[in-house]
Simulated assay, not measured.
Amino acid sequence: MKKSVDKMVEELKETASKDDGEGEQKNEEVKEIEDEENLKKKEEVDDDKQEKVDEKLVAEAVTEEQLVKETNQKQRAEKAEVPTVECKKCMETGSAYTEKDEKFRTRDTELTKIEILFKDKCKEMFENEKVLKDNDEKLTQK
C-alpha cells in the first residue's frame, strides 16, 4: 500500500513537471498528497512508539507482579518454618507424654496384678487360719 502511494506521488511529480500550465495545480495536489502521506507516516510512527511504550509498561507490570509474588512466597515460607519448628516441639512433647502414659499404664497393670495376687494370698491365709482354728478346736474338744 505504501509503495502504491509512493508510485502515485512520483507519477504526479512527473506529470507536474511535464505540464507547465497545469503544473502548479498538480504541484499543489502533490503537496497535499505528500502532506497526507507524511501525516500517515507520522501516525504510524506514533502508533509504533505507543505500542512499544505499552509493551514496556506491560513488561514492567508483569515483572513487578512477579516480584510481589516471589516476595509473598518467601514471606509465607518464612512463616511456615516457624510453625514447623513449633509443631516438632509439640510432637516431641506429645510423644514424651505418650511414653509416660504408657509407663503409667504398664505400672497400673502391674499393680493390678499384684493386687489380685495379694487378695488371693489373703484369702488363702484366711482359709488356712480357719482350717487351723477348726483343727485346734477339734483337738481341744478331744
Results as ranks from 00 to 15, higher is better:
residue 86 E to A: 14
residue 73 Q to D: 07
residue 19 D to M: 12
residue 25 Q to G: 08
residue 80 A to I: 13
residue 14 E to W: 00
residue 27 N to D: 12
residue 55 E to D: 15
residue 10 E to H: 15
residue 139 L to N: 12
residue 140 T to E: 04
residue 68 V to D: 05
residue 113 K to P: 12
residue 136 D to F: 10
residue 7 K to A: 13
residue 95 S to C: 00
residue 9 V to F: 07
residue 51 E to N: 12
residue 114 I to H: 14
residue 50 Q to G: 05
residue 124 E to D: 13
residue 83 P to M: 03
residue 105 R to K: 14
residue 72 N to Y: 03
residue 110 E to A: 05
residue 133 K to M: 03
residue 63 T to I: 07
residue 104 F to R: 15
residue 113 K to Y: 02
residue 6 D to W: 10
residue 16 A to H: 01
residue 75 Q to T: 09
residue 55 E to C: 05
residue 18 K to S: 15
residue 24 E to R: 13
residue 116 I to Y: 00
residue 54 D to P: 01
residue 11 E to W: 01
residue 140 T to I: 06
residue 64 E to L: 14
residue 140 T to M: 03
residue 27 N to S: 12
residue 13 K to F: 04
residue 105 R to V: 09
residue 90 C to I: 11
residue 78 E to H: 14
residue 20 D to H: 08
residue 121 K to R: 04
residue 94 G to P: 02
residue 112 T to H: 09
residue 8 M to V: 15
residue 79 K to W: 07
residue 15 T to R: 07
residue 2 K to M: 01
residue 42 K to F: 09
residue 119 K to W: 07
residue 142 K to E: 11
residue 57 L to R: 15
residue 71 T to R: 04
residue 73 Q to K: 15
residue 8 M to K: 13
residue 75 Q to S: 03
residue 66 Q to W: 10
residue 120 D to W: 00
residue 37 E to K: 14
residue 78 E to A: 14
residue 98 T to L: 10
residue 102 E to G: 02
residue 29 E to V: 01
residue 138 K to N: 09
residue 108 D to N: 04
residue 16 A to E: 08
residue 116 I to K: 07
residue 32 E to H: 13
residue 41 K to M: 01
residue 51 E to L: 07
residue 102 E to M: 11
residue 69 K to V: 02
residue 38 N to W: 04
residue 101 D to Y: 04
residue 94 G to T: 02
residue 77 A to Y: 00
residue 11 E to M: 01
residue 34 E to G: 03
residue 119 K to Q: 11
residue 70 E to I: 03
residue 123 K to R: 13
residue 34 E to N: 11
residue 74 K to C: 06
residue 30 V to G: 02
residue 18 K to I: 14
residue 19 D to W: 10
residue 135 N to V: 03
residue 34 E to C: 03
residue 15 T to I: 00
residue 22 E to C: 02
residue 107 R to F: 03
residue 78 E to L: 10
residue 79 K to N: 05
residue 48 D to Y: 06
residue 101 D to F: 02
residue 47 D to N: 08
residue 34 E to M: 11
residue 38 N to K: 01
residue 126 F to K: 13
residue 142 K to P: 00
residue 33 I to H: 08
residue 25 Q to F: 06
residue 8 M to R: 15
residue 30 V to Y: 05
residue 137 E to V: 13
residue 115 E to F: 06
residue 68 V to N: 08
residue 28 E to F: 06
residue 70 E to C: 01
residue 124 E to F: 00
residue 100 K to F: 03
residue 127 E to C: 01
residue 29 E to Y: 02
residue 90 C to R: 09
residue 68 V to S: 02
residue 116 I to E: 06
residue 44 E to V: 11
residue 22 E to N: 06
residue 106 T to Y: 04
residue 46 D to K: 06
residue 26 K to A: 06
residue 119 K to T: 13
residue 136 D to K: 01
residue 124 E to N: 03
residue 21 G to K: 10
residue 104 F to V: 15
residue 48 D to W: 06
